[in-house]
Amino acid sequence: MGLNRKDVLGLQELTAEEIQLILDTAVPMKDILSREIKKVPTLRGKVVATLFYEPSTRTRMSFELAAKYMGADTMSLAVATSSVQKGESFRDTAQTIESMGVDTVILRHSVSGSAQYLAKIVKASVINGGDGTREHPTQALLDMFTIREKRGSFAGMKVVILGDILHSRVARSNIWGLTKMGAEVRVVGPPTLMPPEIDKLGVKVYYQAEDALEGADVINVLRLQLERQQKGLFPTVREYHQLYGLTPARLKLARPDALVLHPGPMNRGVEIAPEVADSPQSTIVEQVANGVAIRMALLYLLMEGGSSSEGIS
């Protein structure tokens, strides 16, 4: 068992078996979160660094907690407080971090492919904490963990991803992961926020929220970046909400027990109505805890191992 790889850069590269293993490993990790002593010594002496070129409080906190619960030490480098702003190159920053003895680097970056780039530069493990509009694997894994915890499996599940698909790394990672696990994925949003040829990833494309929501088991609502409106990609937030906002009426089109996921932070009243966000069908709060468990699992599974497979007794 174990992920026989140095890095986790996306779900595109993971097999169904590897995804299964990560989800399975997160189950005992989640138990640790509810203990009084939320710490295991597994990663004692290891250093996990978060390198964030984009502001994100929750993802960074989640990774740092996960690392600490696993017994690792953490350090964080955020763009606002580092030499990055003084124009240090990405390579120099990466090499500096590595020379401090870091074992795992969590990277968040606004440019797609930066995680691949970092993985080539450093010997340390790299976990992609979100790169541009490409992938956000840990978010998708925690979404999948949440779905599996509530529904048991993915096979045949109708999962709707609703919103700005074009700019969403969460959507791409979810599509990779869910389709590999046998779910039926529907993507829906305005055509101007739908990447061309996304149907080639094995998803059904909708432009009408009502059509996509019909009979859905899971609805993953994406955060709408309000600056997209300034670029003219949709006319107004008001019209967006009218067409694509997940309202109680629209939620009724899905199965009565449909789950509502949102990666956060939410724009209440824009992509999701407050009544839906706070409804019993919403898993938004649980997703946060599950995120820590998933990240603990990944940190464990990427731990450097030797070549022997001998045990102790």
Binding site: Q12, S112, G113, D131, G132, T133, R134, E135, R169, R172, P195, P196, E197, I198, K200, L201
Partner: peptide
Amino acid sequence: NEGYWAMLLGLKG
């Protein structure tokens, strides 16, 4: 180039 690969790689086409 805008198309399948740009969609996949998350790069603006």
